[in-house]
Amino acid sequence: MQKLRKITAPYMLILPAFILYTSIMFIPALENIRISFTNWDGLSQTYDYISYHNYAQIMKDQDFWNAIFVTFKIVILVILIQQTFGILLAVILEKNTRKNVFLRSLFFIPCLLNTVVVGLIFSYALNVNFGILNNFFNNIGLQKLASIDWLGDARYASWAIVMTIVWQYSGYSSLLYLGALKDIPKELYESCELDGASPWQRFWKITFPLISPALTLNCLITLIGTIRLFDIPFVLTNGGPAKATQTIAMLLYRDTFHYRNAGRGAANATILMAIIIVFSVIQTWYLRKREVNM
């Protein structure tokens, strides 16, 4: 008995976590794929298998391709702007002076806020009549920009989403780059200084090449995190106007709860999961490759 306990003990330590994870995540994820081949409405006891019909419907659906376009547009804009801001802030605030430490911890505050909170702040800040941004443009005399209805005009609504995400996560991004900057040997900068290089040259010749692995990694992290975007457009624009901010995750919410078509919602979720898995595999592959090189 004592012996048996010794052998099984390690497994007993894993078992609770194993059961919880398997029943909440793993089995439901498989179940979701199964449901995606049915016409279940989300409520009734019975449903039929309809093979790949849901997927065929989705592929023919204009809304799906719109959601793919919207999602990737937001993802790409967020990556471009947020990584630029993140790198700039990290480079500028690199030295541990009191002012820099203060600013860094200040810029981190937005990412502690709840998405509903951020959504509400921005639905006020971007309001066309009394919002902060339009008011600001008005004050500095840029009437063209001041009359843009960020939340109500389909041409600009995705920019409103991008601004909100960038506002919330730039400080966070900069901390990820700060870690990479700390690893750059100081001698490189010193020898650069002796050669009389300008800050501009120093950035492109030394800093940028040396933080580019971190850049790739952060782009992948932002990509994987933003593809499943739901909360911000849900609160800020509710997918509108004219579906201009309807992401993939919002589409599957709509199919499941508004159209009462859980089968199709599940098919959408499966597609979303497949996209995320593809990019996660790329991320893992990249991390492994980098470990080998280092």
Binding site: Y11, M25, P28, N32, A262, L272, S280
Partner: peptide, 29 residues
């Protein structure tokens, strides 16, 4: 010391890439 340690580790690793939306409908059911 456990058998299949690597396998169990990777099984948990898989949990990082399952988006919550993909388990929403079955959990609701």
């Amino acid at each position: 010391k456990i058998k299949g340690e690597k396998l169990i580790y990777n099984y948990f690793l898989l949990g990082l890439i399952i988006p919550i939306q993909a388990v929403m409908i079955p959990l609701m059911k």
